[in-house]
Design a protein around this nucleic acid. Structure first.
Length: 651
RNA sequence: GCUCGUGUAGCUCAGUGGUAGAGCACUUCAUUGGUAAUGAAGAGGUCGGCAGUUCAAUCCUGCCCACGAGCACCA
């Protein structure tokens, strides 16, 4: 007798030596028996067919749950692998994990395939699904498994098994003739999958190491039903519409061109955004006692040899300028820190001057790997809202807490909600004693806790000179970008001989905190464009308001209004073109101008303006004075825009 | 840097081994129109660059550059 407790606390009794999920589901109802794809037994996720031999708490999993969808994706990855092996028998399969919204499988093909081959693979996958092959789990002996996969010509699989810890149970899943190493769990049969789509192919290094062979990664997505798949594909399309490169062109913000790879040609509107961000950050700097400085672009390599950057990044990643005549070698500055230390070192510093916070909107140039550049998110020439805080060991924690709070405050003001913090602790190769590292890591951790920032550990990924926090934001299509950062540095002040005199008259090296709030202004602008889909908050919007008359009869009055609002500090334009008001509304709406003010004879007579706010189809007539006050209030409070509704507005 | 792909008018895209088209934008003219496209006419391109094959290349081949997706990298 086996007693199975279900999630609703009811108990089913089975008169047998063992029972499986299929039987449990069947005892509840035929519908559930068909829908069940896996189960948890005492909280552990297992295959539906796993025999249960003693009393247990069981919860059946269907495609309706997150676990269910994950299993579907995982099994679909196996179906992909099977289809690939059937179509390309000499291909070797490697790993095929589940990722956000889908899965991928890395394959080593003898002959390269391209995305046009995906259709055929997808078709074969559908055949595998229609065969409805039972998927069964087997536990194998390690040596047999290695031998089996070697015999199959699957060298990568054999390598994976060989590297599994001795304690790991080697399980394989069989579906028809296809056998794959896998921890599971999986669907009971291939017929339970079926709502999927292969999306793209790309290269990926075996085991993520660029010294290894490059495999072909096939990306796919899989869902519980067609509706979910369609919703996902629609979501992808919508995300493409907010791509900052597309909006950058459409809204006349910036452009990039071949002659200056990775460097932004900021058009007036984009530059207005950029300057708006800079002014915003300056207002924060003033409140938090920073000294803004500015340092040279082109610096003798001697300085970078001393700082250690030359050795690490040198000619590969720095732009070198040679002055043949004077026999000097310069580098475009790739970061600001060595320069800031030069300013720090210009006069003997007292402990009384610490913490000393030095900031710069420094333009840095980095010769990035060609494949790394991406729109304005990853550029060759970038402007950081950079600062270095020179402080004592004791001051670290206080400073980091302040920084975490400040960054959190700033991101909140932009309305970012899904920001997360990566905390990278000590790497194997590092400078500084363990005591110093203990202290530094604790300071960062405590600061996160104090600022109530959720963080995840990125073990061993700290810089060799100190641990760091990275503040990560997500773009329209779900890619993560590091924006703000807080890094502790015990190394550079020593190498570049920065000192302060402590209260006992002794010379000491300060600790340096590298920090950026927005990170690269180019990247942050890109993130903003995507996040707001070009519908910027009024305080940032390049053009805040457009006035237009109904006909050219009102032009003189409109000119006066433009002058009045301009004088009041509003970024306003008049539209005097010989076009109908419908045409102008349409065009300025496409440009996502926050306010359109329309003037007809009625408005002139009443001293009013008829206002249309972007994102709404309503019009409100109000006095000119009230309108100006409303705008100024919205700007002053840095109000976030209301979400745009309606199909027409979303276009 | 690596894998696969892309590059035709300002933008979005057709197209062909015999030196090119559409829509929008632009210019001109007419129109004075109350909240998402008024009409007509005109102008606009070394088909990413260099080399090769060919009587002939935007199209085929090679190399280079840039861009895209991803991997690696990211001081």
């Amino acid at each position: 007798m086996i007693r199975i407790t279900l999630p609703d606390s009811s108990v089913k009794e089975f008169n047998a030596a063992s029972v499986d999920g299929d039987a449990i589901a069947a005892s509840i109802g035929e519908g559930l028996r068909k829908a069940a794809i896996a189960m948890t037994v005492d909280g552990k996720l297992v295959d539906l067919k796993t025999p249960i031999t003693k009393d247990a708490a069981v919860s059946l999993i269907t495609a309706r749950s997150d676990d269910g969808v994950e299993i579907i994706r995982h099994s679909t990855a196996h179906i992909l692998a099977q289809a690939v092996k059937e179509l390309y028998p000499d291909a070797q399969i490697t790993i095929g994990p589940v990722i956000d919204d889908g899965f991928y499988y890395d394959v080593s093909f003898k002959k390269a395939i391209s995305d046009t081959d995906l259709a055929a693979i997808e078709k074969r996958m559908e055949e595998v699904v229609s065969r409805d092959l039972p998927i069964t789990r087997e536990v194998w002996n390690r040596d047999d498994a290695v031998k089996f996969f070697k015999a199959q010509g699957e060298a990568y699989k054999a390598e994976i098994i060989g590297d599994l810890p001795a304690t790991e149970v080697i399980s394989v899943y069989r579906q028809g003739d296809f056998v794959d190493l896998c921890r599971g769990p999986h669907l009971p049969s291939t017929g339970k999958a079926g709502v999927f789509k292969l999306l793209k192919i790309a290269g990926a290094y075996w085991r993520g190491n660029s010294d290894n062979e490059m495999l072909t990664r096939i990306y796919g997505t899989a869902w519980a039903d067609k509706k979910d798949l369609k919703a996902y594909l629609t979501r992808l399309e919508e995300a493409e519409k907010r791509d900052h490169r597309k909006l950058g062109r459409e809204l006349d913000l910036f452009h990039l061109q071949e002659e200056a790879p990775g460097q932004v040609f900021w058009h007036h509107k984009g530059w207005t955004l950029f300057l708006g961000l800079q002014e915003y950050i300056r207002s924060k700097l003033a409140k938090h006692d920073y000294q803004e400085v500015n340092t040279p672009q082109l610096i003798d390599s001697v300085l970078y040899k001393k700082s250690g950057h030359w050795e690490k990044f040198g000619t590969e990643n720095m732009f070198i300028v040679k002055d043949e005549e004077k026999e000097r070698t310069y580098a475009m500055k790739p970061m600001n820190c060595p320069c800031h230390i030069q300013i720090f070192n210009q006069a003997t510093k007292s402990y009384r001057e610490l913490p000393l916070r030095m900031s710069e909107f420094g333009t840095c140039m980095r010769n990035e790997a060609t494949g790394a550049r991406h729109g304005i998110m990853r550029v060759t020439s970038m402007t950081q809202d950079d600062a270095h805080i020179f402080c004592t060991q004791e001051q670290i924690e206080g400073e980091v807490v302040k920084l975490c709070n400040l960054i959190k405050e700033i991101y909140n003001e932009f309305g970012f909600t899904d920001m997360f913090v990566k905390f990278s602790d000590r790497p194997e190769m590092r400078v500084g004693s363990d005591t110093v590292w203990d202290h530094a890591e604790a300071a960062l951790r405590n600061a996160c806790e104090a600022a109530k920032l959720p963080w995840k550990l990125n073990p061993g990924e700290g810089a060799f000179y100190g641990p760091k926090l990275e503040f990560v934001l997500r773009d329209a299509i779900g890619r993560d970008w590091q924006c703000g950062t807080v890094q502790l540095d015990f190394n550079l002040p020593v190498r570049l001989e920065a000192f302060y005199v402590d209260e006992h008259g002794e010379k000491k090296n300060p600790v340096m905190i590298h920090r950026a709030l927005l990170g690269s202004l180019e990247r942050f602008t890109g993130i903003l464009i995507e996040n707001f889909a070009g519908n910027f908050p009024l305080w940032l919007a390049p053009t805040q308001l457009v006035f237009s008359g109904i006909t050219d009869k009102q032009n003189d009055h409109v000119k006066e209004l433009v002058a009045q609002f301009k004088a009041a500090g509003i970024r306003v334009q008049g539209d005097f073109r010989n076009e109908k008001i419908n045409y102008k509304i349409r065009e300025h709406s496409h440009q996502k101008v926050p306010y359109i003010g329309v003037i007809g004879d009625k408005e002139i007579a009443d001293g009013t303006v008829t206002v249309r706010r972007f994102g709404s189809n309503n019009q409100t007539t109000m006095t000119v004075t009230a309108f100006l006050a409303q705008l100024q209030d919205e700007i002053r409070t840095r109000a976030l825009p209301q979400p745009v509704t309606g199909a027409e507005n979303a276009a």
